[in-house]
Computed example of a mutant assay.
Amino acid sequence: MPRQPVYEQVIDDVIRSIQSGTLQPGDKLPSIAELCEQYRASATPIRLALRILDERGWIEVHQGKGSFVAPNPPA
């Protein structure tokens, strides 16, 4: 089975963490640099994952501050 793209892995992991309660509304996600290290990936797929999570309402990205779990993430 082919491995899923890094950005999909990041999306799945973040959603799982929010659904399980590991990440709570308002929690700060690791920085792009930390996520790059964690997933052994360049910043491009990490940024893509964060943008998709933001568009879907799971997180809020604040320029210069970081990414945070949305106050009311999807059920």
Rank of each mutant, 00 (worst) to 15 (best):
M1G: 15
R3H: 12
R3L: 11
E8S: 08
Q9W: 02
Q9C: 09
V10N: 01
I11R: 14
D13I: 07
I15V: 15
I15A: 09
R16F: 09
R16I: 04
S17W: 10
S17G: 12
I18F: 07
I18Q: 07
S20N: 08
T22C: 08
L23F: 12
Q24C: 03
P25S: 08
P25H: 08
K28W: 02
K28R: 15
L29H: 08
L29I: 12
P30R: 05
P30A: 05
S31T: 15
S31V: 06
I32H: 00
I32W: 01
E34P: 03
E37K: 12
Q38Y: 09
Q38C: 05
Q38S: 12
Y39E: 06
A41K: 05
S42G: 13
S42A: 12
T44L: 13
P45G: 08
P45C: 08
P45K: 09
R47A: 04
R47D: 03
L48Q: 14
A49I: 03
L50K: 07
R51D: 09
R51Y: 05
I52P: 00
L53Q: 02
D54F: 07
D54A: 13
R56I: 02
G57S: 02
I59D: 00
I59M: 04
I59T: 14
V61T: 14
V61K: 13
H62P: 00
H62S: 08
G64F: 00
K65E: 12
S67N: 03
S67D: 01
F68S: 00
F68R: 00
A70E: 04
A70K: 05
P71Q: 14
N72G: 00
N72A: 09
P73W: 02
P73L: 02
P73S: 08
P74M: 08
P74H: 04
A75G: 13
A75M: 10
A75E: 15
